[in-house]
């Protein structure tokens, strides 16, 4: 998958949830990725995370990490 696109999409999602009150942005972003992204897209995001996760916003990064290691 084109990681540039995935990063942009993840950041867009994180930007929305960051704006929501309640401080649950990372959780909500992770839930959105879980609900709407096909497994290979999530895998590609994780692979990108392993490679340093360049370009991911802090919240998107936190969401991706949370998604990969659900508490």
């Amino acid at each position: 998958m084109d990681t540039g696109r995935l990063v942009r999409m993840a950041n867009q999602i994180a930007t929305f949830f960051a704006s929501q009150p309640g401080g649950r942005g990372a959780e909500e972003t992770a839930a959105h990725l879980r609900a709407f992204w096909d497994p290979r897209m999530r895998e590609a995001l994780f692979a990108h995370l392993d490679a340093g996760g360049e370009g991911l916003s802090p919240l998107a990064r936190e969401a991706a990490e949370r998604l990969r290691h659900p508490a």
Binding site: M1, D2, W37, P39, A44
Partner: peptide, 18 residues
């Protein structure tokens, strides 16, 4: 039980070979 690909994702995945 896993969500599938949306049209733009399908095209991205096609280019990626999956």
């Amino acid at each position: 039980p896993e969500p599938g690909l949306r049209i733009p994702n399908m095209l991205d995945a096609a280019i990626a070979g999956t």
